[in-house]
Design a protein around this nucleic acid. Structure first.
Length: 426
DNA sequence: TCTGGGGTCCTTTTCCTT
DNA sequence: TCTGAAGGAAAAGGACCC
């Protein structure tokens, strides 16, 4: 507290006008594919699949055409899905590819049978991140209260932005859309509504390159007819449970009494479902947040066995620890909880973690703790994935999380080497 | 022929302390 | 020393999202 003299008079200032909340959700249209098409416009209209595992079919392309501008590389030179062998899934596919039944999350081998002629491009996250930074900079230069929701979408609080109330936000949305297109050549869809929940749904109403404005009065006509699955937060599991009770649309959901929802879905989730169905959502647009955890994981080219492939697994495990440590160091964090994740050949997953007395960003310390975790998990079955995670992050200089009590050094549960199901490893 | 990688948040279970 | 309850923290798993 500084000792400023009390002002002689209160500053004359109109009370903040009680403007209606206008929240926008902006979603870039087919982001990855659109970024690739900026680079390779000659591929426009062709079936393209982005994704893949570790086999880089584009390496030959990069070598043979190193001196050719990307937009002049002949279409025939691009790798085809038919040439791909190995693991991996599709991250995204263009509409021309989807016409063949190919879609996100599909295994590449299956996709290759459906559409062998599709062009396969590797995921170029650096390029998408660069574009992402670019369009977000455009947004914050116009409307500064922006919440990052991933590489291709954001929430924006229009409420206090000059012009943000005109036509319910449509005018400002149009300005942002136009500015992003001029700066990047990319299109986006925007929904503006009284809150994040409705804005998110609204941004899907008119894709691509559309704007939708939703008012509180639109609930019954534009929201209730939609499937429950359209609510951000109702996934496949919750949807199946709702369906089993005959609840298909958001309107069906809104008709169920709060008490009934709480009884069937629990106190927190039940109450949330009720609010969501009635379009209620008070969450603010959050402009800054700290990461909670960092992790690295990898799916092997073939399933590995803890004993037979011990050396290879050991190398991968160490490399993952090193990569997480690098991430922590680069971003300036230390973490106290070290965890592992593994996925068996039957796709079951197991996780173990361990909280240290001191936070770390050191690869060797992480490796040591992760090794302890690994001893607590059954390992006679083949593995397809291994991951390493560091959580309970803090900034090294910052005061440690207020310890109500020092974390008791805990004896590991599950019991290490004495467990008959556990084989010693690494 | 299967099914990526990086996250967040929530619930339940387990363990520890009082 | 045992027993049981209560509450907190850590661990484990799962749902969901991009």
């Amino acid at each position: 507290m500084t000792d400023l003299p009390a002002p002689a008079t209160l500053p004359i200032e109109a009370p903040a006008a009680a403007l209606p909340r206008r929240i926008a959700h902006l979603d870039m249209d087919a982001f990855y594919a659109s970024v690739e098409l900026l680079r390779y416009p000659q591929l426009k209209g062709l079936p393209i699949v982005i994704g893949g595992g570790r086999r880089r079919l584009d390496e030959a392309l990069a070598q043979d055409y190193a001196d050719v501008p990307p937009h002049e590389i002949p279409v025939a030179a691009f790798p085809r899905l038919a040439d791909y062998t190995g693991r991996g899934v599709i991250t995204t596919a263009t509409y021309a590819a989807r016409a063949f039944g190919v879609g996100s999350a599909m295994g590449l081998m299956k996709a290759a049978r459906l559409c062998p002629q599709a062009i396969l491009l590797p995921v170029d996250f650096d390029a998408y991140r660069r574009c992402s930074r670019q369009f977000k900079a455009v947004i914050t230069s116009i409307a500064p209260v922006m919440e990052d929701r991933g590489v291709d979408e954001v929430y924006i609080d229009f409420t206090q932005v000059p012009g943000g109330q005109r036509e319910g936000g449509r005018v400002l949305a149009r300005l942002i859309q136009k500015s992003i297109f001029e700066a990047t050549g990319l299109t986006c869809s925007i929904g503006v509504a009284p809150n994040k929940l409705l804005a998110k749904m609204a941004s899907e109403f008119d894709k691509p390159n559309g704007i939708s404005v939703v008012w509180p009065d639109d609930l019954g006509t534009r929201i209730w007819p939609l499937a429950c699955r359209k609510i951000n937060g109702i996934g496949p599991k919750a949807d199946a449970r709702l369906q089993s009770h005959g609840i298909h649309t958001i309107g069906d959901l809104a008709q169920r009494p709060l008490a009934w929802l709480v009884q069937h879905f629990g106190k927190a989730y039940g109450a949330w479902l009720h609010d969501a169905a009635w379009g209620r959502d008070e969450r603010p647009v959050v402009t800054e947040s700290e990461p909670v955890s960092m992790s690295r994981e990898t799916t092997f080219e073939r399933d590995l066995h803890a004993v037979h492939d011990r050396a290879e697994l050991g190398r991968i495990f160490t490399a993952l620890c090193e990569r997480v440590a690098e991430d922590l160091q680069r971003k300036g964090y230390v973490g106290r909880t070290i965890g592992i994740k593994l996925r068996y050949d039957d796709f079951r997953t197991a996780t173990r973690d361990l909280t240290l007395s001191e936070p770390t960003q050191d690869a060797a310390v992480i490796r040591q703790a992760a090794g302890q975790c690994l001893k607590r998990v059954p390992l006679q079955q083949r593995l397809r994935l291994l991951g390493v995670r560091v959580a309970a992050l803090e900034k090294p200089g910052a005061a440690p999380v207020p310890p109500g009590r020092m974390p008791a050094p805990r004896r590991s549960r599950g019991t290490a080497l004495s467990d008959p199901h556990t084989v010693p490893l690494f």
